[in-house]
Write a protein that binds this DNA or RNA. Structure first.
Lengths: 339, 339
DNA sequence: CTACATTTTGAAATCGTTTTCATAACAAAT
DNA sequence: ATTTGTTATGAAAACGATTTCAAAATGTAG
């Protein structure tokens, strides 16, 4: 492999001048610039990125931590993040944590070892206490995930209010025994949603009973399992709020197969407005997040923090969401006409 | 940030010895090993990865090129690839080409600039002629994509035969005017599928007319568009082969909305056996690829080539697939009972 | 023509590791 | 006591770029 030295020799100039051309800095005559470019082409020269990273202490790379790309919401998110990052000249490296604490910490090492200039956390399973020390090694921004503390910038929607709205909608459709299926164990986001959900119930003199709360429900399969559990143990259930469209789809699928009518026998709400929620029969009511805006702001903030190493103030950006009402909750006036 | 020098000083030893401990090489007494580990912990030392990469000429990183992670097939693929890679101690960096030639070439630069030790191409839009030169910079393996030339290892299923089987199935179900919706423009894979599809038709005295061939059909939206096109311009169509479950889902969705019965009025076949194909009403007949096996072999081969830099022989691994028959093609005995 | 600023160039230091090579220490064998 | 072999350690070179600093060349104003 050709090095910068080889190029310099062939062009009859110094490494320094070649470096100037590579990074198109000023103070090189047009004539020499041409000579150097020719030499580079002739040798098929490409700068070694480990060397430049080592010397310049910049990697132009951002790590994005997320649970898994097979979850369509995160697929969409990473898509937008990458797009925006490349607009700013940054590469993105995708880090799937699978909701494992140790993986999250492993990936944060990328910041310490200087493999990345900054980190976007769209996955947050560790206690903040354990994450905080990494801030010494470089900027971290929370995307979608959030919490109460303020020592880091966060970009997200109001999950509590969103869940509140969803629950209210179910109540307005006549549901009286509403189940709650949630994904992550104890992330702040989950707690927020649950709080919002319970608030709505309480305001209508209802509450979430232990038996109607199901945890660790993440994908289509879990959704099916959840329905079967409810069918056997809580047959009077008439509505369900789920943490994702995939879970909602699983519920709808299993319920339909068992002869339950949706929404008459069971109204279903999903989350994230994935294509899937539209395609299901019946189409699923869901909450849409402004993914592109969130991604855009996240990158903007992080890049800013990378460049102005000095303390940029940490902020919180809360974006609006939308409850999209579809057939899966369209109970008209009648509800529960006997199964 | 603490460097190896700092650790050495604190422990009262040399850089070399510290390096030996870091890379757990032999010839360090237990006593000093302990002393060094303590020093590292005290300083919160982590080796700078640019420096080690530069010196050791290894990155322990693999680039995976694929069209987009939002396509569930590739989501699944990257999931498995990353899993396997980490078993071998390799990181994966995900590179979305969006089927753009220039992006594919840009990402291949990672190999030249020594940012990665090897590349997995699950996206191949450029001519092989333009890719080949990169082989000088490091190993490349084709995963899912393939071609006739033999200078690189390929892992895939027999797409020609798979498409043949799918077409044959449609024919056996009584379809006589079968449409063909394909994604990528001119990848070898597309050509193979089309050949297989046409072979089956020809063997039954049919052929693919220009009007029934639709290209550039990639996602759910395209599937809907395709159906509307067919409805207007080719109303006699009674079956359709699509390049992905997403497209198939789009067709089913649009068709159902327009009052067509599936499969009686239109039989539909997808590809990849994504969850979506099972969830649709009716469930969609599709072809399942052994993604995990493919991923596993791909990593195994690539890591081997990275380690034995000398010429490892290039090979071709062809895995079995399975045609999964579901409602979307279950025409029983009757077909086309008048619309 | 001198003085001063600006443009152009290169030698050498530097980034933080790993690797090479030389040497010291120690044990076992003659 | 000397040789031989193995284990243990460190000084210095190397990886391939960018950055610093000094100096040369050129331009410009007085």
């Amino acid at each position: 492999m050709a090095t910068i030295e080889d190029v310099a020799k062939l062009a009859g100039l110094s490494r320094t001048t070649v470096s100037r051309v590579i990074n198109n800095q000023p103070y090189v005559t047009e004539e020499k610039k041409i000579k150097i470019n020719e030499a580079m082409k002739e040798l098929g020269y490409v700068p070694n990125s480990s060397a430049r990273r080592l010397r310049s202490q910049r990697t132009e790379t951002i790590a994005v931590l997320l649970p898994r790309v097979t979850n369509p919401f995160f697929g969409q998110l990473i898509e937008s993040l990458e797009q925006k990052a490349s607009d700013y000249g940054y590469q993105v490296i995708v880090c799937q944590t699978h909701d494992k604490k140790y993986k999250e910490l492993d990936y944060l090492q990328l910041l310490k070892t200087k493999q990345v200039d900054g980190v976007i956390m769209a996955s947050l399973t560790n206690e903040w206490m354990d994450i905080e020390p990494f801030l010494d090694s470089g900027p971290i921004v929370l995307c979608n995930e959030y919490m109460e503390k303020q020592d880091v910038t966060m970009i997200h929607i109001d999950h509590k209010q969103a869940a509140y709205d969803a629950a209210l909608h179910l109540i307005e459709q006549g549901c009286r025994r509403i189940a709650y299926a949630s994904g992550g164990r104890e992330t702040y986001i989950s707690k927020q949603r649950k709080t919002g959900f319970c608030d709505a119930l309480r305001e209508h003199n209802m509450w979430l009973s232990k038996e109607l709360e199901i945890n660790e429900v993440l994908d289509v399969g879990d959704g099916q399992t959840t329905f079967h559990y409810l069918k056997v143990h809580q047959p009077e259930v008439d509505g369900i709020f789920t943490g994702s469209d995939e879970v909602a789809a699983g519920v709808v699928y299993a319920a339909s197969k068992e002869g339950w009518r949706i929404p008459e026998d069971l109204a279903v709400v999903g989350f994230d407005n994935q294509m899937l929620s539209l395609l299901m029969v019946p189409a699923i009511t869901t909450i849409e997040q402004p993914v592109e805006q969130i991604a855009s702001k996240t990158i903007q903030v992080l890049v800013d923090q990378i460049k102005n190493k000095l303390s940029t103030p940490t902020q919180r950006f809360v974006y609006p969401y939308e409850l999209i009402k579809r057939k899966s909750t369209d109970c008209n006036t009648v509800k529960k006409t006997a199964r």
